[in-house]
Simulated assay, not measured.
Amino acid sequence: MTTQVFVDGAAGTTGLEIVTRLAAHPEFEPLVLDEARRKDPEARRQALNDTPFAVLCLPDDAARDAVAMVDQESATRIVDASSAHRVADGWTYGFPEIVGRDAIASADRVSNPGCYPTGFLALVAPLVRAGLLPADWPYTVNAVSGFSGGGKALIERFEAEPDIAFRAYGLSLDHKHRPEMKLHAGLKHGVLFAPSVVPAFRGMLVEVPLHLGAMEPAPSADDLRSALADFYRGSPVVTVMPAGDPGELLLHRDASPDDGVELSVFGNEGGWNARLIAVLDNLGKGASGAAIQNLNLMAGLPETTSLQLHPSH
């Protein structure tokens, strides 16, 4: 017998991908309200209280409102894909590789990580925890994503303006992803975050450039790669790539869904500089795939059930 999962906000990009994954899942069944009921507060309230699991694919304020609809005595367990609760008390951050699988498995309220923070934290959090990178360093994050991460509005803009090759944004230096990067990496300072979007539907590259020689004690690129490999050893989702220069890292316009993430560490001769790079699917491990992974753990299932993982993972 399958377990129902109410997807609140199933018409959005993330919601559609979650519904697709749940429909193919052997243990879960998506519950989606029809057009006439999805904006009916009472229909939503009933679904939010009577379904074993709910996934919120809503804007931040709407996600907070949805949580407020859940009665205190309700047994519904929630995964919130918005950014509303990623640094909130009482919520477990939904990055099992970082916070621990047992923490997710026992949680009733799980906040799905943001797509950019997933790449940043996968690279930096284990190294800060190991003492190889300083917690008080002024970290910079340069990142590029496919346009699906911006939802329907950005998708429509790229379709309407086919000559646009690159969009840099977050120019106020106050992007909403910065608080979760700082908190969950255990940093003293907020990061300098430079996000951008290219005309590919999905895919993401997150880079953290480092001046290792200015750190005390100065780690080597090999030290960092080895520590990451040890941290993620045996992970079915996170792959640490071996040393070596592949020449280039690519995002493809028509990439297929992928719920894994690949981490690379590149260092120059002499060891002064390093580039930490995460490549992932912003709709996979960066959103919908992470939600399914968290639901699996919360339900006591193998974490990769129904995930779409490429052979390298």
Rank of each mutant, 00 (worst) to 15 (best):
H177Q: 13
S306C: 15
R86K: 11
A62N: 02
H189Q: 15
A130W: 09
V206G: 03
L16G: 14
P209E: 06
G284E: 00
D222R: 15
R253H: 05
H211G: 04
R37Q: 15
T51Q: 05
S226Y: 15
P52R: 04
Y93E: 06
D89N: 12
H252I: 01
L58C: 02
E269Y: 12
G146V: 02
A11G: 08
A153P: 07
F53N: 02
K152S: 11
K182E: 13
V124C: 01
F95A: 14
P134Q: 06
A62Y: 01
R45T: 11
R275M: 12
D102L: 10
D223Y: 05
S220C: 05
R275I: 11
P219S: 10
L132N: 05
P219Q: 05
G146C: 02
D163H: 08
S83P: 04
V124Q: 00
N296L: 01
K188Y: 00
E159V: 04
V261E: 13
P209K: 04
L210C: 08
L154T: 13
L251P: 05
L133V: 11
L187A: 02
A200W: 04
F166T: 00
Q72T: 13
L132M: 08
G9I: 08
G300P: 01
I292E: 05
L280C: 14
R202E: 15
R233A: 14
K39I: 03
Q308F: 06
S264C: 13
D65F: 02
Q72R: 04
P138C: 09
F193M: 10
K285H: 06
T92N: 08
I78T: 09
R233Y: 00
R64W: 02
D230C: 05
L210H: 04
G203D: 12
P179Y: 06
T13M: 04
Q293D: 10
G90M: 08
A290I: 03
Y116H: 12
H184I: 10
T3D: 05
G94V: 11
L297P: 01
S235C: 07
D174G: 09
T2R: 12
P179G: 11
M69G: 01
D245K: 03
G151Q: 10
S145N: 03
P246S: 09
S226W: 10
G260I: 12
L173T: 11
L309C: 03
P117V: 02
D254R: 11
V238S: 06
A11D: 14
P302E: 06
Y139E: 10
F120H: 05
A274R: 00
R21T: 00
R64T: 08
L127D: 13
H211W: 15
L224F: 07
D89Q: 14
R233H: 14
M69F: 03
G213V: 07
A43G: 07
L132S: 08
F193I: 09
V7I: 13
E161S: 13
I104D: 10
V141E: 00
T14H: 14
A165L: 13
D136Y: 03
A135R: 15
G234K: 10
H252N: 11
P59V: 00
G289M: 12
A63G: 00
